[in-house]
Design a binder for these strands. Structure first.
Ligand code: SF4
Ligand code: SF4
Lengths: 145, 145
DNA sequence: TTCTTCGGCTTTTGTAAACTGCACTAGCAG
DNA sequence: CTGCTAGTGCAGTTTACAAAAGCCGAAGAA
């Protein structure tokens, strides 16, 4: 269970928007270049974010993206789940029917029990932090250039 | 960041040993068949567990494996980390030098900060539970055959 | 010695992540 | 209305790693 690049790129892309004045429309090419992310890859990620209502797209000349909510209303969990779907340590955590060894476990799985607990701890962290939190940390700790 | 089959197999393999009398030497073939795990794959997993001192191997006729500690002395974290190495949401969590975008983040990464917090929550769950806990849950909940 | 079971290493297979490309569409500027 | 620009949608490629299988050697019991 590793974080994917898509998730990392998504967070940094949105964070980049959050750093600017919220009325500024920023084209993908700028985000892509500033953050060192392959443009077409980022495009796909932002399409998902756009559909999920996290960012708003503006087409045409001088188009681009803006945040569609305030930074403190966007949880990290939202971003991550939009990009890669519900986050599960194992498929069976979401529903027991996804268990691929059901005939071996005699109706109960202790490992799954533990995974459910562990996953909740993890997701709670992502749910409990918003984009504004990351932004605040960054402003407090990043070396001013 | 998904759990790997190797980890799942490892936990169930060790759990299978824990279910039996600790003096019983159990061959890989039995574990493999009982748990429905490819034998050579399980062999590789148990080799790691053996080196890590979690199980003890016995070669020759009527050989096999036994637990080398009591079930309540084996944490789930131990098992998982033995099989797949230290568990990290992203490489950079273990050491900042693994960051592959270091020139973009200006000395500080807010995402990493969050990942460190999240990972700690996760690992604490695995560290706080032992094989004996899983065994107890299983005995309490599994349908007697 | 001989059979059995683990040990170590190599290779193959399968699948998903990571990235690319192209045709299309919506919107703004002049 | 015309033409450029930037996002949309989907298909395709490449790369990486998980999952599994295979082979031969080593250790140990009988
Ligand atoms: S055996 Fe347990 S851990 Fe594995 S898929 Fe089924 S419920 Fe999940
Ligand atoms: S940019 Fe941040 S999250 Fe990404 S690898 Fe570097 S430290 Fe980790």
């Amino acid at each position: 269970m590793q974080f994917t690049k898509a998730e990392e790129y998504g967070v940094f892309g949105v964070l980049y928007l959050a750093e600017k004045d919220s009325s500024l429309v920023t084209p993908l090419s700028e985000i892509s270049e500033a953050q060192g992310i392959p443009e077409k890859f980022l495009a796909k990620i932002f399409q998902s974010l756009s559909k999920a209502g996290i960012v708003r797209s503006h087409r045409g000349v001088r188009g681009g993206f803006t945040l569609s909510k305030k930074a403190n209303e966007i949880t990290i969990k939202e971003i991550l789940e939009t990009i890669q779907g519900p986050y599960h340590l194992m498929k069976c955590v979401s529903s027991m029917s996804e268990c691929d060894r059901s005939e071996k476990i005699n109706g109960y799985c202790a490992l799954r029990e533990l995974l459910v607990i562990a996953e909740k701890q993890l997701v709670d962290v992502f749910e409990g932090h918003t984009l504004a939190d990351l932004l605040a940390w960054q402003r407090a700790n990043q070396i001013p250039h």
